[in-house]
């Protein structure tokens, strides 16, 4: 079954036609990388998947996006419920000014969980899934700000995992990190693939080729090519894709 199925998606920021007739089908437990030059619409598309663009005034969308077969833009959809199903990790690590434990517990608490044993189990499990446990197990009650940038980003991933999402969206998750931390995040993405479907936006083409099963190339609001990553990086169909990935762009 398709976990994400975007059909004829058009998106506007006021008068600006940011996405033009996007069609993407994503299978379960795959990693999808979205690449393209700045302003091509890849981040905009990512943020449509958990309705983060709702926060911006004057935007308009047509077409439909189905997550697990349900149209997430249907009028009766509860956005907070959708966001539990589709988690997100941002470009800059943004842990809350709370302890490491409370950061991960936050998503559970705001969603009405009060069972402390359950919360504790879930928190530990999520930190372990985010490959952070060994580094923080002795300081769960210390501030999240005391962690390094790479650790903070993995904490943010743990935080997203705690509410058991089906899909994890990552918006350039390693762009603010050093190479070692970046490598750890990439390893983590490979591990997480077993349990989650991941859509990642990245400026780093090598990263896209390393972590993803399928790659989509966006240019000027259009999805120029969407195919297996091996195909895109050895023999892309479109000339425009080839120019971009070989760095002959612009």
């Amino acid at each position: 079954m398709l976990i994400i199925d975007a059909k004829n998606v058009d998106f506007y920021y006021s008068d600006f036609h940011a996405l033009k007739n996007i069609n993407i089908e994503v299978e379960k437990n795959k990693v999808i990388a979205l690449i393209g030059p700045s302003g091509c619409g890849k981040s905009t598309f990512l943020r449509l998947l958990n309705r983060m663009n709702d926060l911006i005034d004057g935007t308009r969308m047509t077409g439909s996006i189905l997550v697990e077969g349900e149209n997430i833009y249907a009028p009766n959809v509860r956005v907070d419920e959708l966001r539990k199903k589709v988690g997100m990790v941002f470009q800059k690590p943004n842990p809350f000014p709370k302890t490491i434990f409370e950061n991960v517990a936050y998503g559970l608490r705001v969603n009405g969980n009060t069972d402390n044993t359950f919360i504790e189990e879930r928190v530990i499990e999520s930190i372990k899934s985010a490959a952070l446990w060994d580094e923080v197990k002795d300081k769960l009650n210390k501030s999240a700000f005391a962690l390094s940038g790479g650790q903070q980003q993995r904490l943010c991933i743990a935080r997203a995992l705690a509410i058991s999402p089906k899909v994890v969206l990552m918006d350039e998750p390693a762009s603010a990190l050093d190479p070692i931390s970046t490598a750890k995040i990439e390893e983590l993405i490979y591990e997480l693939k077993k349990d989650y479907t991941i859509v990642i936006v990245t400026h780093n083409m090598q990263q896209a080729s390393r972590v993803s099963d399928k790659t989509g190339y966006f240019y000027l609001g259009e999805l120029v090519e969407f195919d297996d990553t091996t195909k895109i990086f050895t023999n892309p169909k479109e000339y425009s894709t080839q120019n971009y990935i070989t760095g002959r762009f612009g």
């Binding site: 419920e81 941002f90 809350f96 969603n111 935080r159 509410i163």
Partner: peptide, 13 residues
């Protein structure tokens, strides 16, 4: 920073 608001909202808050 707006990213803290996004971070919280993205968790279903």
């Amino acid at each position: 920073d707006f990213s803290y608001r996004e971070g919280s909202l993205a968790l279903g808050a």
